[in-house]
Design a protein around this nucleic acid. Structure first.
Length: 549
RNA sequence: GCGGUUAUAGUUCAGUGGCAGAACGCCGCUCUGUGGCAGCGGAUGUCCUGGGUUCGAACCCCAGUAGCCGCCCCA
């Protein structure tokens, strides 16, 4: 029976990007590519899913991203039916097999005909049963029932808990759970929630460090986090990012690289036309500095914790660094009194940071040192930064409270955390969705023409209007000729009245070419230019040239 | 994950416990091969979904779903 179904929709937190907006996305991406290539970056494309361990180890097991926002599943579960059957048989001295073992062809399901305490029983082994009895099971059950045979489904305990037991019981199917998983060789897979870990994994896997060269890699692609969707925050979102990494001898640890990346970002935002951006940066020190500072922070928080708001009390326990960028106005005085990480940097980290700042100053890139700026991901060391645009107080942002446009930092220990060689690096990720929103909002606030954002597709060179359906074939042939000559051409339908063709043509093209009986016979076409309203007769061999104008 | 708010035509949005609306867009005619203007006409709806209250629900109630805003977190 056909069930009336609701139309399918894009799943929560995902969306379609349609023209003309996609033109803006392409423009943003092509400007990014252009800037990256001028700084010597090459494109890397890593898989959209990776082993879950990559993110657990790289991003940090305790971060919200990893602990509750990832799309993770078990891939390649292989069912071990033989083990399931053996386990069952061991348990059932009361069962006697009748006949030989069988396997059903449709999927790995094994069954035996047995007598259990004298009752003839069809014993089916399924490692991955359907949540509710499927068609196959229902059909088999009714056949067995007709023959007076009992139906016993043997499943693993861990699956049993997920089954629609009522569904099976109401049919009269007996279910028997067995302790154990009975699956072999599955892999935990995760849709990437960010791209740095993947890039570093690829760096290690392809021994890019052995080239001895500094690697400069950029990427543009979708990332996935299972967060509550909001404006500028989607479950599938796009990031434009870049990483600079390599062996120490390639200069990957040099503060020059930090400054270069930051200066490149300033250039990129300027070329994109983002107004009013702010660069905030900080140093969180080496991994050791960071650990030491977190301990000190914890100690400093302990006596005053109870005075903080509820959220901050929780953070003080779970992730003390995050207390620092709390926005709670009542807690600001207390937070200001907390120890600053700058005071706990070792000498080399301090010098490194100073060198970054002076290089930025030399380039004339404006910045603000924000001693409270910390990053959520575990792998960050030393320089961390964020580019923001004005908040919702300024309508030009378009981002509400989500005012961070991009963020990044240095990750000197990440490669080793992932089991690779020492490969210090620095990188960033731009939230492309937010970047686009900001561009749109800034254009709207300035009352700019949409054209400024390239939202209107450019007018085509010509629109061919065949008069009558019998001229359609000739129209398409003419269009082919012109298109091959490099012109952009749309073909109307001869079924349209000429009036309609003119309206359609004026919308999309600069010229209309009328293709009727006379024109086909004389090979001289009637061409009207919308901008001037002038209509002329043009010979076929001069048509392409004339339409280009 | 928590709180608030919204959901009506292709789009932007009115609307009231008693026939489903406007503007723009779309289609047709005035006007058979000459548009933009104008006039006239037309089509388009699961009024988010599912329950409930009611003689009667797009409207009131409950639940769900989705968008948006704030929180959490983050790009």
């Amino acid at each position: 029976m056909p069930t009336p179904s609701n139309p399918l929709k894009a799943v929560r937190g995902t969306r379609d990007l349609l023209p003309p907006e996609t033109a803006l996305w392409n423009r943003v991406e092509s400007i990014a590519r252009s800037v990256f290539s001028r700084y010597g970056f090459g494109e890397i494309r890593t898989p959209i899913f990776e082993d879950t361990q990559l993110f657990a180890r790289g991003v940090g097991e305790e971060t919200d991203i990893v602990s509750k926002e990832m799309y993770t599943w078990e891939d390649g579960l292989r069912e071990d039916l033989a083990l399931l059957e053996d386990t069952w048989l061991e348990k059932h001295s009361d069962a006697t097999y009748v006949g030989t073992p069988f396997e059903l062809e449709t999927r790995p399901i094994a069954w035996r005909l047995a007598t259990i305490n004298g009752v003839e029983t069809f014993v089916e082994f399924r490692v991955l049963p359907e949540i509710s009895p499927d068609f196959e099971v229902r059909q088999r059950f009714s056949e067995l029932k007709a023959r007076g045979v009992q139906y016993l489904l043997v499943v693993p305990q861990w699956k049993y808990d997920q089954l629609n037991l009522i569904g099976y019981f109401t049919l009269g199917i007996k279910l028997e759970p067995l302790p154990g998983r009975f699956v072999a060789k599955s892999q935990d897979i995760t849709l990437r929630p960010e791209n740095t870990a993947g890039v570093v994994r690829a760096y290690i896997e392809h021994n890019l460090g052995d080239t001895g060269q500094l690697q400069k890699l950029f990427y543009i692609g979708p990332q996935f986090r299972r967060e509550r969707p909001q404006r500028g925050r989607y479950r599938q979102f796009w990031q434009i990012g870049a990483e600079v990494l390599g062996p120490i001898t390639s200069g990957s640890e040099s503060p020059l690289r930090d400054a270069e990346v930051l200066e490149m970002l300033a250039t990129l935002l300027d070329e994109l036309g983002i107004k009013g951006w702010r660069l905030e940066l900080n140093s969180v020190g080496s991994a050791e500095d960071r650990t030491r500072y977190v301990d000190i922070l914890r100690q400093a928080l302990a006596p005053i914790k109870h005075q903080l708001c509820e959220d901050n009390q929780r953070r003080a326990e779970t992730n003390p660094l995050r207390v620092l960028d709390s926005k709670d106005p009542n807690d600001q005085a207390l937070i200001d009194g907390l120890p600053k990480i700058a005071d706990y940097l070792d000498e080399s980290s301090r010098q490194h940071f100073d060198a970054v700042l002076s290089a930025l100053a030399a380039c004339g890139v404006p910045y603000t040192v924000n001693p409270r700026l910390v990053r959520g991901l575990d792998y960050y060391t030393r320089t961390t930064f964020e580019f923001t645009v004005p908040t919702s107080a300024d309508p030009a942002s378009g981002l509400g409270t989500q005012n961070a446009l991009l963020g990044g930092g240095r990750y000197d220990g990440l490669s080793e955390m992932l089991g690779g060689p020492k490969a210090p690096g620095i990188g960033f990720a731009i939230g492309e969705d937010r970047l686009i929103l900001t561009l749109q909002a800034q254009a709207a606030a300035k009352d700019l023409e949409p054209r400024t954002l390239n939202l209107e597709p450019p007018k085509l060179d010509a629109y061919i209007a065949p008069l009558g359906p019998e001229r359609n074939a000739a129209a398409l042939a003419l269009a082919r000729e012109l298109r091959r000559a490099g012109l952009s051409v749309e073909v109307g339908d001869g079924a349209f009245r000429l009036k309609k063709s003119f309206e359609a043509a004026d919308r999309v093209a600069r010229h209309i070419v009328i293709l009727g009986e006379d024109e086909l016979a004389s090979r001289i076409f009637t061409v009207k230019t919308f901008a001037t309203g002038l209509q002329t007769k043009i010979a076929r061999n001069e048509l392409a040239q004339s339409l280009r104008a």
